[in-house]
Simulated assay, not measured.
Amino acid sequence: MRLDQFVSQALTLSRKQAQQFIRAKCITVNGQIVTQASTPVPDQAQVCCEDEIIRLPGALYLMLHKPSGVISATEDPSQRTVLDLIQHPHVQTLHPVGRLDKDTTGLLLLTNEGQWSHRISAPRQQVPKVYLAKLAEPLNRVAAKQLELGVRLHGETQLVAASSIEMLPEHYARLTIHEGKYHQVKRMFAAVGNRVEQLHRERIGGLSLDPTLMAGEWRLLTELETQLVFADPSA
């Protein structure tokens, strides 16, 4: 981890503020003043600010009911990000686990723990994600079967398939996928001649969006919930 990132997270400062502390010779690493923000901090190093030891916050795990109109990013010069919705002293340490499109709503996880995030996002981990889609046209059985067998997305060489698809009334369908390609659900329905008008993520692994959370609201996960994301919901 870079020194400015470490200081930013430990003192809940912006990255720019952390760099100012470093340039002002307020930060030492193992007793030595360091003035380069990009200096890597070794594991188990003792980092001090004005002779006071500073430490990184513990692991944080959150669920957010993402509303439409915000982007799944940590910062953006012109658009609201999901971090703008979270009031927490260590919000700047968080990053989204995967991403939802700007106009997609529903369950988004955030954390400061990289390994947990990677286990959820990595395609080889096969963590299912469940989406509820409102379509421009009702989904027919032929298209639903095609989605289960696999469709070829524009620019992709391999077929992409839904692990399950449920046809619902009134132009709705529920789709489960394991990958997380760019605009994947929208592109899959486009490949069978349909169009997604609204998209909402309901579940990741065995963890469903808390129904008490309104759009834009968040809460910390319980210890059980941090493992529930890796559970097989069909078991």
Rank of each mutant, 00 (worst) to 15 (best):
Ala231Ile: 06
Ser68His: 08
Gln19Cys: 04
Gly58Trp: 06
Arg119Gly: 05
Lys25Asp: 08
Thr35Gly: 09
Ile71Gln: 02
Arg2Asp: 03
Val70Cys: 01
Thr12Met: 07
Asp4Met: 10
Arg141Val: 01
Ala136Asn: 12
Leu199Pro: 03
Asp76Val: 05
Asp210Val: 06
Gln146Phe: 00
Phe6His: 11
Ser121Leu: 14
His90Phe: 15
Asn140Val: 00
Arg15Met: 08
Leu221Gly: 09
Gly106Ala: 02
Gln79Arg: 15
Glu223Gly: 06
Glu50Val: 12
Leu159Phe: 11
Pro169Gln: 05
Thr105Gln: 12
Ala162Trp: 01
Arg219Gln: 03
Gly31Lys: 02
Pro128Asp: 01
Arg99Glu: 10
Ile22Glu: 05
Gln126Leu: 11
Leu209Val: 08
Thr28Cys: 03
Pro211Leu: 02
Gln126Val: 05
Arg174Cys: 14
Pro57Ser: 13
Phe21Leu: 15
Ile86Asp: 04
Val160Trp: 00
Gly98Asp: 04
Leu13Pro: 01
Ser68Thr: 12
Val160Asn: 03
Leu110Ile: 03
Ile71Cys: 04
Pro138Ala: 11
Arg124Leu: 11
Val82Leu: 10
His178Lys: 14
Lys181Gln: 00
Leu11Thr: 02
Gln92Asp: 04
Val185Trp: 00
Gly180Lys: 07
Ala143Leu: 00
Gln32Met: 07
Asp51Ile: 00
Leu109Lys: 10
Thr81Ile: 09
Ala143Arg: 00
Thr28Asn: 02
Gln20Asn: 09
Leu159Asp: 09
Phe6Ile: 07
Pro96His: 06
Leu153Thr: 06
Pro67Trp: 11
Gln158Pro: 08
Gly216Thr: 03
Tyr61Gln: 03
Arg124His: 14
Leu224His: 11
Glu179Cys: 07
Gly180His: 07
His90Asn: 12
Glu75Ile: 00
Glu156Ser: 05
Gly206Asp: 08
Met167Thr: 13
Asp232Cys: 13
Lys66Ser: 06
Arg174Lys: 15
Asp210Ile: 06
Val185Asn: 01
Tyr172Gln: 15
Val91Trp: 02
Ala122Tyr: 12
Glu170Gln: 14
Ala24Leu: 12
Val34Gly: 03
Gln44Trp: 07
Leu224Met: 12
Thr176Ser: 11
Val41Leu: 10
Thr111Ile: 04
Glu170Ala: 15
His154Asn: 14
Ser208Val: 01
Gly58Glu: 15
Pro123Trp: 14
Gly216Tyr: 00
Thr74Pro: 04
Thr93Pro: 09
Lys145Thr: 04
Gln46Phe: 05
Val82Cys: 08
Met63Glu: 10
Val41Asn: 10
Thr222Lys: 11
Leu149Phe: 01
Ile54Thr: 10
Asn112Glu: 05
Ser121Ala: 15
Met63Asp: 03
Leu56Asp: 09
Asp43Gln: 12
Val7Thr: 08
Ala24Arg: 15
Arg195Leu: 11
Gly155Leu: 02
His183Ile: 05
Ala136Tyr: 07
His65Gly: 09
Asp76Thr: 06
Arg219Ser: 01
Leu213Trp: 09
Cys49Ala: 13
Leu209Tyr: 09
Ala10Arg: 10
Leu224Ser: 14
Val142Leu: 00
Arg174Phe: 01
His183Phe: 06
Cys49Gly: 10
